[in-house]
Design a protein around this nucleic acid. Structure first.
Lengths: 352, 352
DNA sequence: CACGTTCCTGAAAAGGTTTCCAGACTGACC
DNA sequence: GGTCAGTCTGGAAACCTTTTCAGGAACGTG
């Protein structure tokens, strides 16, 4: 039914090989041949079958993106960026939502492995060990990687990764709160299994310690609006004058509940989010939050992955041929993107 | 490198054919053979190469999802649902964001065509003619469809589609506003090229006409928060006492700007959105909006597409063998999902 | 014991592409 | 004119599966 290379060859009166060459490396055929082939291909609406090509070249020109929950507005932003930059390099994107389930995650990755050249794992929920096992299985970690994996929003050796500098973000947030007179701050933690939660908490602890502030940790909640709403009363009952939420969704949940309870923000308590999702600036009061470079995370992830894929194809010649020191050769590559506190109206002077 | 069927065959001491059978149709081989094969496959970590399989079966078990902008929170909800239900039927999802560009859309579809069994086009931006041409090219419209297309959020013959019942949603919204005493209502239109915009406008006109209300149409804006913010002053200057926005993002833009201008909502003007995205209930005042069954649209889209794919494989035997009348056989299939007005606090009695 | 069935297995072809290798042709140079 | 290099082309193998077809074994029946 669909036009194949054979049809084009017949119509152009040349062999399959010539068609292939004319289309892939035009400088290797005579101009008139090329023209005949191009005409024929156009007339027939010929597009090479990528599956067949992949079979022989070993490249699918697909990358697999796996993430825990598309309903969290943070992820679509990253995916959009991934998409855009992948297309620019002629890669198509396989998307998988795991519904926060590590088991689904693993099986999805395995199933997809043969169809993609590499993976971009956004905030994977599997344990470090599982992830490493998966990596071994895919040959992602061996000398000559087969299906490379780049991890986003999490650091798990030996995979290259792109993360946000949460520690610095927390430092900015705490600095801001401290300047406003806050001395007791609560943290509403996200899922215990989440690496970013641990990372943010770590940054927060160090920041509060250096400012000599008291940190009150409120239980782990689902990273959703409802999760935030659920602990709002708990937070209000605590001695904290400010609260930092695991992410914006949780912060919005807090805000919502505080409003319902008539707890003034920032009069009675200040609220800080994390991520800076689209609508954080639109709620009332507009949410002070630590912005993450979502676009950059997606872009750098794609870059890293494509570099890896290129290296794999020609392992000898490096992009930049200057000699690297041995530490450099023995990666992992980690990329850390800047965070930026956005001060809006949900933070104010501490009540005395 | 990766284990192939040949490796499994060698390890199990059987032929490739037997491996294939043992894995695909276990009842066709002797139990001990099956067991040996399964063991070997497990030991080698063998997963069949889907590309190779697709080459011979003609099925890729992939579906292509194309949408204009992942940053619009409406789409991730639909995609998530698509994803979930596709996986349930063992289909993987190719995702493409066209950035609202019809040209990108067409080229993306063409490029993806060979890698997917069918397409789910969400709110495609191409013209009806382009879409039909694309459909012809893919054989989607011919008697024996090759790469079927299902359109979501738009109706364009001859493709099957799933749409929301905007007309009814608008009727509910207008009924609500009328009951509150509003007689002049503004509509902030979305992109002129958008089918849903035209659909919603059509529904709105008929609704206002039947209630004998005046409809004031404010220019077409981008379906974003900024788009809404941009026309807020215009709307405020009009005699309208209520405004219906093309979608929630636009409505949120209006709300935001009204607040900045100190224009009371709903005191001075009532605002109604469309879509019911996640955060519409969290802003202040919580947005009255027409909810769309996003989950259902995704699900029904997948169902429709998979039915089409099944039909294609065995065109004779139908799911339900009762004779259909000729109108039924000569599809298109259209599915319309219910809409539901969610009354929150952005609507109130008309100012007198 | 011969015959027909049934069940299981292996060989081989097919699917669409790319790549390797060898051959044909051109033109230049001795 | 003969040789050589260089350019272009076609044939065939290879990638990994699935499926078709035919053959072989086991079994039951007449």
């Amino acid at each position: 039914m669909a036009a194949t290379i054979k049809d084009v060859a017949r119509l152009a009166g040349v062999s399959q090989s010539s068609v292939c060459r004319a289309l892939a490396r035009p400088e290797q055929v005579r101009p008139d041949t090329r023209e005949r082939v191009e005409r024929a291909a156009r007339d027939l609406g010929y597009y090479p079958n990528r599956a067949a090509r992949g079979l022989i070249t070993g490249r699918t020109c697909n990358i697999g993106v796996v993430l825990p929950d598309l309903a969290n507005p943070f992820f679509p932003s990253v995916v959009k960026s991934i998409q855009t930059h992948a297309r620019r390099s002629d890669y198509a994107v396989f998307l998988s939502d795991t519904d926060e389930d590590p088991a689904v995650e693993a099986s999805l990755i395995r199933a997809l492995a043969k169809q993609v050249d590499g993976f971009l794992l956004c905030s994977p929920r599997a344990s470090d060990e599982e992830l490493r096992a998966l990596g071994d299985e895919l040959g992602a970690t061996s000398g000559e990687p087969r299906t490379p994996i780049v991890v986003l929003n999490r650091r798990v050796s030996p995979f290259p990764s792109v993360t946000a500098d949460s520690a610095d973000g927390m430092r900015q947030a705490i600095g801001h709160l401290h300047a406003l007179g806050h001395r007791r701050v609560a943290y509403v933690a996200g899922p215990r299994a989440s690496w970013s939660n641990r990372d943010r908490l770590r940054g927060l602890r160090s920041a509060t310690a250096s400012y000599d502030m008291e940190l009150i940790e409120a239980g782990n909640v689902a990273p959703t609006v409802d999760g935030g709403a659920a602990v709002a009363d708990l937070v209000a009952a605590s001695p904290a004058t400010a609260v930092i939420a695991y992410n914006d969704l949780v912060a919005l949940g807090l805000l919502h509940r505080f409003r319902a309870r008539d707890i003034g923000v920032p009069g009675r308590i200040s609220v800080v989010g994390f991520d800076d999702i689209l609508l954080s600036g639109l709620v009332v009061p507009p949410l002070t939050t630590v912005a993450i470079a979502k676009e950059e995370i997606g872009r750098r992830g794609v870059e890293l992955l494509i570099d890896l894929l290129d290296d794999r194809r020609n392992p000898n010649k490096r992009e930049n041929p200057r000699p690297r020191n041995e530490r450099d050769d023995r990666r992992p590559l980690h990329r850390r993107t800047a965070t930026q506190l956005i001060v809006r109206e949900s933070t104010g002077p501490a009540r005395s």
